[in-house]
């Protein structure tokens, strides 16, 4: 027999559980409501306009969308090979004790607060990029427009590098999980056929794990897109689409961090909230895709013993 206490407990627990979708809905509704002035004034053209002129109250989101996407893509170009290499080391290559230490270190990278990365970015990474990395890149690839222009520590490149460091743990940890979920008999069959370690990995691990790896990469992308403080501190905060990665840029998250408390006019505030809405939309879609891919793989194959 069910007691009244049980019914109440269930109701209370459900109320708390149900508050999660309610909160989510409230966030979306409130953001739409608060940015309505901007949505109404600029319409769909807002997304593709690159004007940012607070004096004339004309705003467009494109430079920020561009900065957000490009800095995240640079981060992936750097972090994906590193993260996969690291995950291979942890799951396929090393059998030693060092492996555990490396795993902990990569996990700790994820625990360092964003603002500390930013501090380090201003004083250590930025100058290194301006004095070493950019001259090096220009000396070799200077014929490409993306590596032209004056050197600067406050640049799209700095933001990309710092984001790469921040998404590295995500990509490593999830790829490692995905590799571990590849059944062992695949590896054993490859080895039994006389394959080398590399051939085994190529055939028996990377192949079956492909969609999981893509999921890990997209999940890393999701994290990079919404990252705020570290990027704000090194990207140079300039709403312009430049062909060079040495030039400063701006992201959706960092323009909100910089200007939200100090928006000049009502429409300016509404614009910033709409930028938040755009950011929310992009990250939710990207994360949704990633989760679907990781989930499809890890639920299909059983974990290896």
């Amino acid at each position: 027999m069910r007691s009244a206490g049980d019914a109440w407990f269930k109701r209370i627990a459900f109320a708390f559980a149900a508050s999660i979708p309610v909160l989510l809905l409230a966030i979306i509704v409130l953001l739409v409501k608060q940015s309505w002035l901007s949505i109404h004034t600029f319409g769909a053209g807002f997304i593709i306009s690159s004007v940012w002129d607070p004096l004339a109250d004309e705003y467009g989101a494109l430079p920020f969308i561009y900065g957000t996407l490009v800095s995240s893509i640079i981060a992936l170009i750097i972090a994906v090979p590193l993260g996969l290499g690291c995950a291979l080391y942890l799951s396929e290559v090393s059998r030693s004790k060092t492996k555990e230490y490396i795993a902990v270190m990569v996990e700790l990278l994820a625990a360092i607060p964003s603002v500390v990365y930013g501090l380090w970015g201003i004083f250590v990474l930025g100058p290194w990029i301006a004095n070493v990395v950019q001259p090096f890149l220009r000396s070799i690839f200077g014929f490409l427009p993306i590596f032209q222009g004056p050197y600067s520590g406050l640049s799209m490149l700095s933001a990309g590098v710092i984001l790469a460091i921040m998404v590295l743990p995500t990509i490593t940890a999830i790829s490692r999980e995905v590799f571990n979920s590849v059944p062992n008999y695949l590896r054993e069959s490859a080895l039994a056929l006389g394959a080398t370690k590399w051939e085994t990995v190529k055939i028996a691990v990377l192949g079956p794990a492909r969609s999981g790896i893509v999921g890990a990469v997209i999940l890393g992308l999701g994290r990079a897109l919404g990252e705020t403080m570290a990027v704000t501190m090194v990207i140079g905060n300039r709403p312009e689409i430049s062909s060079s990665v040495f030039a400063p840029a701006y992201t959706l998250a960092s323009v909100i961090a910089n200007e939200f408390a100090e928006a000049v006019s009502d429409i300016n505030l509404a614009v910033l909230i709409e930028l938040g809405l755009v950011l929310l939309f992009i990250t939710v879609v990207v994360n949704g895709i990633a989760r679907l891919m990781v989930w499809r793989l890890t639920s299909k194959v059983k974990a290896r013993p």
Partner: peptide, 21 residues
């Protein structure tokens, strides 16, 4: 599903929500 979506919302957007609310 809502919890999953909530976890992927950038924290600065949550900040806007708290400011308005």
């Amino acid at each position: 599903y809502a919890a999953d979506v909530l976890s992927s919302i950038p924290t600065i957007v949550i900040g806007i929500f708290a400011y308005v609310l």
